[in-house]
Every structure is written in structure tokens, then in C-alpha cells.
Design a protein around this nucleic acid. Structure first.
Length: 308
RNA sequence: CGCGGGGUAGAGCAGUUGGUAGCUCGUCGGGCUCAUAACCCGGAGGUCGUUGGUUCAAGUCCAUCCCCCGCAA
């Protein structure tokens, strides 16, 4: 089949790889190269790098809805379009181009967690289950008819980065089954239950700000849901302290103020939350590299200081 | 040349106006103890990121290069 693949980050790679392995005729449409890193090096999106490596034609548009993008899509004459974390909204004109329409690979159990960062928000909210939903792309934000769903259990200590990898692989599988069903004309379209719909926003830096007046579980979920990006942090002496990894503990509590730290290089570092102590396993001070809490404490003490 | 922090024992840090390199953890040995991740005593382990310069003397001052990191994007 001739498939126009619209995707951008790592999440889209397994799906793209699956399509290529399956022998489809592909063209990749993705975002323009972006400045990345400390020196703002112009970097191609992962899907572009993959496409170049495998001799797949690549097209990059700031907005594929504009005439230029529409023309490029039409010129490829796709029978099907597939989107996976593309990062741009499509127009009705875009969607009308392929005869089989457009299938989207989404990282949540729709209609829950529509939007840009469903995997992270599922963890932040403490969900124990998520999954991949393939759907017919429509004009709204992840509102199209559901095609297939594969569920996935979230490990209690899993980080967003770890879950991302598993979800990306599962996405490729679910997409493969979806296309197989399309080819045998056995796809069933199930409209979403709008009353159950929830939306999640794109993650920003400030979503990593910890609130130590929340429960141990809530803080822990925030830490792992924002790892590796944007990363959780709290303020120590007015400076941000990144918290990369934490672990829930059963330590007894007294009347300590929320956010106060205790611990040493031998036992580890603990912070008081609303209902107990959360162990901080990995952290990073402002000019420093990422360190285990015990290594960090070998050089200085945080005993009695308070995270805000 | 966007702003800034940093490279000193295995790890994390300190090192004042240049004058024999310290601390915590780990490690090794010994002791105490019913026992211990606790405590006490002792030991090993560093050409102080590179190269060059100033000086009687450089971890410390100057220059250069390499590497790591935070912010911003």
C-alpha cells in the first residue's frame, strides 16, 4: 500500500520501522529541523533521520495544512495516511487525500487522555493501566472513531521514559493489526464516548515542579511521570534541585514540616510529604551532574533543609 | 562567539592573602558488641583535566586547549 507517514519523535519510529518491514511504499512527512541542545544545533527529527537512512523520501513542513503541504501530500498519492506523534493538526483537506483516510496511533486508552502527553499524564495521575488506541484521525484533537485498543499495565515505579519505549513498540503492533484489518475490510469504527473524554496538556517545565504538601504517592508519580523530561524539581535555598528518582517508604512520621529533608551519605536522603517520607534516590544540583543521593551527600549535608 | 557553574584519592566535596594537599562515604586491617548499616583505632590510595607562562615556590596567578553540567532556546 502507498502510505504517507506523518510522525516526528522516537515514539513514531517503531511504527515507521514496522511499515517499512511490511513492504509498504512510504513517504515521511515531518516537522522541520529544530535547534537542539546547548549550542542550538539544528537537528533533524528522528523520523527524518530514519527515513534518510533507509532511502524513504522526506518532506518537512511548518504547517502541512498550508497549500504547499497539501500539494506535496497529493503528489505522493497515498492510499492511506498514518500519524504517530506528528505534532501538527491536520485539515479536512489533508484528511480527504487518501482513499482509506488517516489512522492515528495514540498513547492512551481513548477517550481518556486526549492530547499531547498522554503517557506522562497517565503516570502523573497514578493510573495503573494505559495502552495504545488506533483511531480514524479527524479534525478535532484525538476525537476520531476508535479502531483497535491494546492495553498495557503500568509498573508502579516505571518512569515516563521507560513506559514510552514500551508504548512505542506496542504502537507498532497495534498499527500493524489495524492495517491488516483494513486490508481485509474487517475494521470496525467505534465512536468515542464524549462523556468519558479527558484532555491532557503538553508538558512544560513547570509541570515538573514538585508540591511536597501532596502525598508520597502523588509526589512519586510526579517524579516518574516527568522523567526524563521535563524533569521534576523543587527549590532548595531558592535554587532548583532536580529530583530524578524516588522511592516510597513506610517510615514513621512525627510532626515534621512538609518538605524537610533528612538523611546522610550512609542511609540515603528522605523528604517529608503529606503522609510520610519519600526517599530521594537520584538528584542533580544546579551546576552538577546527575548523582545518586548517597554520593551527593558525601560532599555536603542537607539535613534539616527544606524543599519548597 | 546567548548567559552561567565545574573538572583535586574509587565516589562526592573543601582548599583562606601562592609556602609539605584535607573532609565525608567507600575500601583494607584491628577493636567494641548477642549483633549491626552503629561506635572506636589504624592503613592504603592523588604526576590537583591538558599544554605553556610568571615565581625561590603554583591546586592557588595568567594564557591555551579538551571534557562535563545548569539556564535559555
Amino acid at each position: 500500500m502507498r502510505i504517507a507517514f506523518l510522525g516526528t519523535p522516537e515514539f513514531a519510529l517503531p511504527s515507521l520501522d514496522m511499515l517499512r518491514e511490511s513492504g509498504h511504499t512510504l513517504a515521511v512527512f515531518t516537522q522541520p529541523d529544530r535547534p537542539v541542545g546547548r549550542h542550538a544545533t539544528l537537528t533533524p527529527p528522528p523520523t527524518k533521520a530514519y527515513a534518510l537512512e533507509h532511502g524513504i523520501p522526506v518532506y518537512q513542513f511548518e504547517k502541512i495544512r498550508l497549500p504547499e503541504g497539501v500539494e506535496a501530500l497529493k503528489a505522493f498519492v497515498p492510499e492511506l495516511m498514518v500519524t504517530a506523534a506528528f505534532g501538527q493538526l491536520l485539515s479536512a483537506e489533508n484528511l480527504a487525500i487518501p482513499k482509506y483516510g488517516c489512522i492515528n496511533v495514540h498513547g492512551s486508552l481513548l477517550p481518556k487522555y486526549r492530547g499531547a502527553a498522554p503517557i506522562q499524564w497517565a503516570i502523573i495521575d497514578g493510573e495503573t493501566e494505559t495502552g495504545i488506541t488506533t483511531m480514524m484521525t479527524s479534525i478535532g484533537m484525538d476525537t476520531g472513531d476508535i479502531l483497535l485498543v491494546d492495553k498495557l499495565a503500568i509498573d508502579p515505579d516505571e518512569t515516563a521514559g521507560e513506559l514510552f519505549e514500551r508504548m512505542a513498540l506496542l504502537g507498532a503492533e497495534t498499527l500493524k493489526k489495524t492495517i491488516a484489518a483494513l486490508e481485509t475490510r474487517t475494521l470496525v469504527r467505534i465512536p468515542q464516548d464524549e462523556t468519558q473524554a479527558t484532555k491532557c496538556p503538553m508538558l512544560k517545565k513547570e509541570h515538573g515542579k514538585l508540591d511536597l504538601t501532596q502525598t508520597v504517592a502523588a509526589v512519586h508519580n510526579r517524579v516518574r511521570g516527568t522523567n526524563p523530561w521535563p524533569g521534576a524539581f523543587a527549590l532548595l535555598d531558592g535554587e532548583p534541585l532536580k529530583i530524578h528518582k524516588t522511592r516510597k517508604t513506610e517510615q514513621p512520621t512525627g510532626d515534621e514540616p512538609f518538605g524537610i529533608l533528612k538523611g546522610n551519605a550512609r542511609h540515603g536522603l528522605f523528604v517529608r510529604c503529606a503522609d510520610g517520607w519519600l526517599e530521594i534516590l537520584e538528584l542533580q544540583a544546579i551546576g552538577g551532574r546527575k548523582l545518586g543521593a548517597k554520593d551527593y551527600l558525601a560532599g555536603k549535608t542537607l539535613e534539616g533543609k527544606v524543599l519548597i
